[in-house]
Design a protein around this nucleic acid. Structure first.
Lengths: 339, 339
DNA sequence: CCCCGCCGTGTAATCGATTCCATGCACCCG
DNA sequence: CGGGTGCATGGAATCGATTACACGGCGGGG
């Protein structure tokens, strides 16, 4: 592979001049510029990004560590992150933590070793020493979706409280009184917040959220199945199950199906996170939709701001309720999705 | 950030010795090794992967360019690729082409600029000059799922012909005679092959595949919707639609639903690529399942073989039919999925 | 007419690692 | 006791870029 020296030789100039042409530095004669450009063309020369990064101490690369690539919410997030980053002249390296803190650390470490310019993380847990160190050491960093309390890093996320209130109102209006939730891991902020928001909303209707109606999940389908089976085994099973993410809702659907029961007749179902498939499940699933694309873009903007020495603030965007049929038919619909 | 010089100074040895300890070269005294390790620990030193790559001319990184991250098939592929690569000591950088040749080229170019050790591609089109040049220039490369004919690069893919024959037999057994297909782009091998396999299988049953029953899609949901609407507008609409990928099946489902029609009563539906959601759609969708995880792993093994100077052969694995309910009830099931 | 300053260019230092080669020392064998 | 072998170590070159600095030539102003 041709290097800058080969180009210099071919063009009959020094490497400095070649470099100046490539970085369009003003002080190069038109003639030299033309000769260099011709040599570049002739040799099919492309600058070595590795060498350039070593010298300039910047890689124009962002690291994105997400909790689970198989979760459509995160793949949509990843897509919008890459798009916005590309628009700003950055590449993105994605690391998939699979909801495992050890894998998350592995990716953070290799990304740091590669000297990425900034890190976007949706932490799987309360924060490994590694990540806290990185933040403290001044690595530009932004949390997206989930965050770690007590760390001075901007957070870009959706606030689901309003939507959860709407959801509970919707359920209450349909006559449901015994509501249960499949929670996410307590080590994640989204795991905690969604339960808190649900409990708060229930309280506003004078409803209680007993311990038996909080199932501990881990944001993966299998846990949704397991927890739902537990609910169905209760002496007085809940009338509605609210899954804290889309994969656990899928598991819940599995469990209900496996018992030969039906949604919403035997058990109503709602989920946090809306995805295209929810329109097509049997029945279509009522969900709380996050502005996923906007979150990804805002996160990149905040991170790049930090990298380039600007402020880079936290952003919170509202989520909204999308009513479908999985909680029963609503005589006076709050809002109906176009399905 | 501490460099190898800082470590050398702290340990009171030369950088050469530090490097030897880090790469566990045998000829280092136990004492020097201990001092270096202590210094590394004390400074929290991590080797700079950029500098190392420049010197050694290897990045221990694989590039993966996929056609569409939002397609669950490709995200599963990406996941297995990353897993196997990690097991072999490589990182993976994913580029999402979004079925756009220009974006595909963009990613191939930046990956090449970063001097990745090898490239895994599922081409969106017949092959840009860029990719052909890279292959000719000797960049280790492997095609996965889709490939470009006439290029001397190993291909790791699934052979769907047997499964398509099974599907047609299944459909024929259910009494269907007017079968249509939503094809993928003709510029992709999978786009062509699936139509060819379908046509072949139909011929074996004495059935024809008229031009009106081949709709041109682009592997995205919207095209599935559009093509299906076209089919439904025919004077004599098909009884079955076979979508060449899962997203177009989703679009087809949309279109049928939008007309107030039902699957499979008004129109039967089958898809290439099986995904977890197909169990939960209304109705569950009959699909052809690829051994996706195995494909990803095999592709990485072939690529790493090439990189490390071994052979690295093509691999073809069979796909299989998974019968569900979207084509009608089967009195004598060929095979039934556990749903 | 002379000097100052700017413009275009080249030389060389530098980034952080790896690795070849030389050196010094200890030990072994004859 | 002398010379050869081998091991531990350090110095310095190197990878491919960027960039500070020096230098020669030319034009304009006093």
């Amino acid at each position: 592979m041709a290097s800058i020296k080969d180009v210099a030789a071919e063009a009959g100039v020094s490497v400095a001049t070649v470099s100046r042409v490539l970085n369009d530095h003003p002080s190069v004669s038109a003639e030299a510029r033309a000769r260099v450009l011709a040599a570049v063309e002739a040799l099919g020369y492309r600058p070595n990004a590795v060498a350039r990064s070593l010298r300039t101490d910047q890689t124009r690369t962002l690291g994105l560590v997400i909790s689970d690539v198989l979760n459509p919410y995160f793949t949509e997030l990843a897509r919008s992150v890459e798009e916005e980053a590309r628009a700003l002249g950055y590449s993105v390296i994605i690391g998939n933590a699979d909801e495992r803190p050890d894998l998350q650390d592995h990716h953070v470490r290799t990304l740091l070793d590669r000297r990425i310019d900034g890190l976007l993380v949706s932490p799987t847990d309360g924060g490994s020493p590694l990540m806290l160190d990185a933040a403290r050491a001044g690595t530009p960093m932004v949390f997206v979706d989930r965050w770690i309390p007590g760390v001075d890093v901007p957070v870009v996320r959706a606030d689901g409280r309003g939507a959860v209130r709407d959801l509970v109102a919707h359920l209450h209006g349909l006559g449901h009184r015994r509501l249960a939730i499949i929670a996410g891991p307590a080590a994640t902020t989204t795991g905690q917040e969604r339960v808190a928001a649900f409990r708060e909303a229930l309280a506003a209707f004078g409803l209680d959220l007993p311990g038996t109606h909080i199932g501990q999940g881990d944001f993966q389908a299998e846990s949704g199945r397991r927890v739902t089976e537990g609910f169905l085994d209760l002496a007085e099973p809940p009338e509605v199950v609210f899954a804290a993410d889309n994969l656990m809702a899928l598991g819940a659907l599995d469990a209900v199906r496996a018992r030969g029961l039906r949604v919403p007749d035997d058990l109503a179902l709602a989920a946090f996170d809306d995805i295209p498939w929810f329109v097509h499940t049997d029945p279509p699933i009522t969900a709380i939709a996050q502005p996923t694309g906007e979150l990804g873009r805002a996160a990149v903007r905040a991170l790049v701001d930090r990298i380039e020495g600007r402020a880079g603030e936290s952003v919170t965007l509202p989520a909204r309720l999308v009513v479908r049929r999985s909680c029963g038919e609503n005589p006076t619909p709050v809002q109906r999705s176009t399905s």
